[in-house]
């Protein structure tokens, strides 16, 4: 079982990304998946969480994810807002940032950085990092193929918007791969 916790602010699309990753895994990747938001009222700008569970075995456990394998952070200003809660020794933090170095000094866990907002701005003209983060995830964790993610993105939005987001995902994927 791979358990992922997504950190974003209301309106940044962290739950949308957690859901599309689940769709990619289950509809196109042959992997069982479950995705859910942090339950409750939602407010734009407030810290929100999304969760994705991935497994080759059927997933029946709906209890909360307390010790994630991956923490995906859309907005680095959330670092102090619970990003480091419940980390395991081998948890990987994937962070949307221009510079991951200072964060690496704060935790013993592996921190993978990618400037996803810059890529999204260049390709789509919008600072939406949510879908691009899936490219960074696919670069460090090969359970869900990039191809499956592309198909799930195409299902989730208009073709023109989807194509641009797929380009963001691909560029982030290659940037992270090269930096590894």
């Amino acid at each position: 079982m791979i358990e992922i916790r997504w950190h974003g602010r209301g309106g940044q699309g962290s739950f949308t990304a957690s859901r599309i990753l689940g769709a990619a895994a289950s509809v196109y990747g042959g992997i069982n998946a479950m995705a859910f938001p942090s339950f409750g009222p939602e407010r734009r700008g407030a810290p929100v969480l999304g969760f994705t569970k991935l497994s080759r075995e059927p997933i029946t456990d709906r209890s909360e994810i307390l010790n994630p394998d991956y923490v995906i952070v859309l907005d680095e200003s959330l670092w102090e807002e619970g990003v480091t809660l419940g980390l395991k020794e081998d948890t990987v933090i994937i962070l949307n940032t221009q510079n991951a170095r200072p964060y690496r000094e704060k935790v013993s866990q592996r921190v993978v950085g990618a400037d996803v907002t810059a890529v999204a701005l260049e390709v789509t003209g919008l600072p939406m990092a949510n879908l691009g983060m899936m490219g960074a995830f696919a670069a460090v964790e090969d359970t869900v193929a990039l191809e499956a993610i592309h198909k799930a993105v195409l299902d989730a939005m208009k073709p023109s918007v989807a194509q641009k987001n797929i380009e963001v995902i691909q560029r982030v994927y290659h940037a992270v791969k090269e930096a590894l």
Binding site: R19, S26, A33, M34, F36, P37, I59
Partner: peptide, 8 residues
Amino acid sequence: VLTHTYEL
């Protein structure tokens, strides 16, 4: 846990 949880 069921109404808002996504699955196949």
